[in-house]
Design a protein around this nucleic acid. Structure first.
Length: 439
RNA sequence: GCCCUGGUAGUAUAGUCAGGCCUAGUAUAGGCGGCUGUCGCCCGCCCGACCCGGGUUCAAAUCCCGGCCAGGGCGCCA
């Protein structure tokens, strides 16, 4: 098979830009063969590019013989370029088609393909992930990541407008003692280091310099979680704000969620249609329920949880039925939260930590932080952590650490909500879990 | 880590409970041929599979044991 060169060809239009008004105009389009319908003397090639699909129509007697012959060799997923004339045609999809004058084949594909790129014959998630780049040819899957992109644009725009500055903290950290979740070890020259599981300590420190910071980046947890909402590598959206309390950053969070939902609903109509999903832009403020109120509600549902205990998944599922929307859970017991979460000034048994829930899924957790060094050291000790391994972190509390608060939001979980997709693996390009390290 | 369910052509499934009529059916993909308005095109022909190992039995895709792999639930999870 002779492979053509790109040469001087450059795209004149994306598929979505080809409209009946362009009738008679010569265009150059690029993309991949999605489908071929051969009617004998008439052949339809459906070309797909990043914006949609377009019909290339090859009449045996109306197209030059060279193109007719070449078009016969096309297979699904061939990467091609077409130079031709736009033709208005009521029988064609979208009322328009391309009549080719010249066809270039840039790359061929192996047949049969490992999965059906049209999606008509469904493939299991495992098969799909093994051939992920092919799986991502499907418009529904591309829609998920365009929605993620839109959400990220909205996040950056909103936080920047609110005066937050984007920062990057280290992925390689030295201490394995930040908290409960297991860390991945890394060989760091002659020493052992770890992949960061959160930007927590660094973003707190940076609140001392920049007051309002945010970070969007990957973090790593070596948990043997086997669920549809956990991965070993995940993208977290984090903020930290100086001179603020829990309520202040909860306000930021709910306004952010509102903005993101609105932006995606307004700007991703085609994507949402492809996914068959509707976004209901939530009203703010979100409902705030205290931990105690949650326990009482669960008690009414015949689920007993002792005060101070964490809430098991089954109980969260019940809560999700009672509150099928976004809501905060506040006033968690101090002992159920991380060492850096600030205890309430009046009642230190309770903390200023919160979770943002959507139905039964935790999207975000955050709170006011301890900025008093003595108290922080006391909390470390209570949780069985050594102050020695937090020495460099604790030192920053001697330099005028302001009162501060913040949260971390799981990007993929947010995208699951925005797309209606039920498995986190589907909303991550190349997901990593306990059992999957490739592709 | 514990538990449940499953593994049949490239993909997706039927068949397994009640072993034999399964030289394993169907759809789709793929190959060849035909077809000038398809849009899940259509028609004909063809190709192609019982996860691996052991056992029970006259007989195993089907039952049993072990292994590997996968999906899911729980737990874990700043």
């Amino acid at each position: 098979m002779k492979i053509d060169k790109l040469g001087a060809w450059r795209r004149s239009h994306y598929s979505a830009d080809i409209s009946p008004e362009l009738d008679g105009q010569e265009v150059i389009v690029f993309g991949w063969v999605q489908e071929i319908r051969d009617l004998g003397g008439l052949r339809f090639v459906i070309l797909q590019d990043k914006n949609g699909q377009l019909q290339i129509t090859i009449h045996k007697n109306k197209v030059v013989a060279e193109v007719v012959e070449k078009a016969k060799t096309l297979q699904k997923q061939y990467s091609i370029g077409v130079k031709g004339k736009v033709k208005t045609m009521k029988n064609a999809p979208g009322g328009v088609e391309i009549v080719p004058n010249e066809l270039r084949i840039f790359s061929v594909s192996e047949q049969p393909l490992p999965l059906d790129i049209t999606g008509r014959t469904k493939a299991e998630i495992d098969v799909r992930l093994d051939a992920r780049v092919l799986d991502l040819r499907r418009e529904e899957n591309q829609a998920i990541f365009r929605i993620q992109h839109a959400a990220l644009q909205a996040v950056r725009a909103f936080l920047s407008k609110q005066g937050f500055m984007e920062v990057f903290t280290p992925r390689i950290i030295v201490s394995a003692t930040e908290g409960g979740a297991a860390l991945f070890p890394v060989a760091y020259f002659t020493r052992e280091a770890f992949l960061a599981q959160s930007p927590q300590l660094y973003k707190e420190q940076l609140s001392l310099d920049f007051e309002k910071v945010f970070e969007i980046g990957p973090f790593f947890r070596a948990e043997e979680s086997h669920t549809r909402r956990h991965l070993s590598e995940f993208i977290s959206v984090d903020i930290e704000q100086a001179f603020a309390n829990a309520e202040d950053v909860m306000n930021v969070l709910e306004e952010l969620i509102h903005d993101v939902c609105k932006y995606v609903a307004d700007n991703c109509k085609r994507e949402l249609e492809l996914l068959g999903h509707k976004i209901v832009v939530p009203e703010i403020p979100f409902k705030r329920l205290t931990y105690r109120e949650i326990l009482e509600e669960l008690e009414n549902e015949k689920i007993h949880i002792n005060w101070g205990e964490d809430i098991p998944t089954a109980a969260y599922r019940v809560l999700g039925k009672l509150h099928p929307y976004y809501y905060f859970i506040t006033d968690w017991p101090t002992k159920a939260k991380a060492f850096y979460i600030k205890p309430n000034d009046d009642n230190p048994e309770l903390s200023e930590g919160f979770d943002l829930m959507w139905h039964w899924v935790e999207l975000s957790s955050g709170g006011a932080r301890i900025h008093d060094k003595e108290l922080l050291m006391k909390r470390l000790a209570e949780q069985g952590l050594s102050t020695e391994s937090f020495k460099t972190h604790l030192a920053t509390f001697d330099y005028g650490m302001p009162p501060h608060a913040g949260w971390g939001l799981g990007l993929a979980r947010m995208v699951m909500v925005l797309t209606g997709v039920k498995n986190i693996r589907e909303v991550v390009l190349f997901p990593r879990d306990q059992f999957r390290l490739t592709p």
